[in-house]
Amino acid sequence: MEWDPVKYVQFGDYRDRPFFDLTQRIHADSPRLVVDLGCGPGNLTATLAERWPGAEVVGIDSSAAMLEQAAVHTERFPNLHFELGDIAAWTPGRADVVVSNAALQWVPGHEFLLPGWLNAMPEGSWLAFQVPGNFGAPSHVLMRELAETPQWSGKLDGVLRRRDAVGEPADYLRIALDAGWRADAWETSYQQLLPGQDPVLEWVRGTGLRPVLGALDAADALLFEKEYAARLRDAYPSTAHGTVFPFRRIFTVAHKPAGTGAGE
C-alpha cells in the first residue's frame, strides 16, 4: 500500500520530536555527505540541509508519493536532493552522516545490515537512527489480536509485523560497540495527548495500520477499523484533556573514531 504524505504528517509535531531529540546528539562539524534513509515527505531532511549548508544532503525513500511531496524543499536548499531507493539495498559509499528516523522497522533483518554500514563508513562519521519501541503496546497488540481472529486471519495472515521487528536499546548498542564505534543508545516514552474522536486510530492509519488497509478491500477495511476502534477506546480512554497515547521510541547515535579504518 502506498504511503499517504498528508496522513503521515497529520500529527507532525508529535512525529517530528524524536527526530530532533536524535539529531541534536550528532556532533559533526563539516560533513561532506549527509544521507537521510526513509526521508518521507522531506520536511525533516530539509532541516539537515539547513544545519549543514556545506554538505550534500540526500533523502532516500521507497515511496514515490513521499518524494513528490519532498521535492518542494529543494527549491529552498540547493545542497538538497532526493532519490527513490530501497534501504535494504543501500550502501554508505562516502556518507559521513547517516540518519534514519522511524524507517528501519520496515526493513526486515535491518540489524544484520548495520555491521556492514558501520564497517564501510569513513573515520569520523556518524550513524543515528530511531525506531518505534511500541510493538508491545496495546495499539499494536490489539491490531495483531484482531487480525488473528477467525474472521480476519485468512486475509491478514503474515501481514503485520511482530514484536521482534526492532531490537532493544542494548541490542543496537552492542552492534555499534562490536564494530569499534563509540555509541549511545536509549529509549524515551512520550506521553502524547491526542485530540479528537478515535485519535489513536487516526494515528495508526498513517503508519502501523497501513499493511492491513492495503490487504483488505474498502468494505472489509471499514469493518476491521470499526472493531479495532472499539478496542482502542477501551485501551486508551478519552479524558477531559484528550487521549493519552504513550509513544515509546528507541534511539542510537554512534561515532566512528579515528584509527578504526573505513572498511573495504
Rank of each mutant, 00 (worst) to 15 (best):
P92R: 14
R94H: 10
A95H: 04
A95W: 04
A95N: 05
D96T: 13
V97A: 10
S100G: 09
A102Q: 04
A103G: 04
A103T: 03
A103E: 02
W106S: 07
V107F: 05
P108A: 01
G109I: 03
G109Q: 07
E111I: 00
L113Y: 07
L113Q: 06
L113S: 10
P115K: 05
P115C: 09
P115W: 02
G116N: 10
G116A: 09
W117D: 14
N119P: 00
N119R: 14
N119S: 14
N119I: 13
A120K: 07
A120Q: 12
A120P: 07
A120E: 11
A120L: 12
E123A: 10
G124K: 04
S125N: 08
S125G: 13
W126G: 09
W126R: 07
L127I: 14
A128L: 12
F129K: 01
Q130R: 06
Q130F: 04
V131I: 14
P132T: 06
P132D: 08
G133P: 04
G133V: 04
G133A: 12
F135S: 07
F135A: 13
G136P: 00
G136C: 06
A137H: 15
S139Q: 10
H140E: 15
H140Q: 15
H140T: 09
H140R: 11
H140M: 15
V141I: 15
L142T: 09
L142N: 11
M143E: 02
R144T: 10
E145K: 12
E145C: 05
A147H: 01
A147M: 00
E148P: 06
E148I: 08
T149P: 05
T149R: 10
P150R: 02
P150L: 02
P150T: 05
W152A: 05
K155R: 09
K155P: 00
K155F: 07
K155H: 10
L156A: 02
L156M: 07
L156C: 02
D157H: 06
D157L: 01
D157F: 05
G158E: 09
V159H: 02
L160H: 03
R161S: 09
R161Y: 03
R161H: 11
R162C: 05
R162P: 04
R162D: 12
D164V: 01
D164T: 13
D164A: 04
D164G: 03
V166Q: 02
V166C: 06
G167S: 00
G167E: 00
P169N: 10
P169F: 06
Y172A: 09
Y172G: 11
Y172Q: 08
I175P: 02
I175C: 07
D178K: 12
A179M: 11
A179N: 12
G180E: 09
W181H: 10
R182V: 14
A183T: 09
A183S: 11
A183H: 13
D184E: 13
E187F: 01
T188C: 11
T188L: 12
T188V: 15
T188S: 08
Y190T: 00
Q191W: 04
Q191E: 14
Q192L: 14
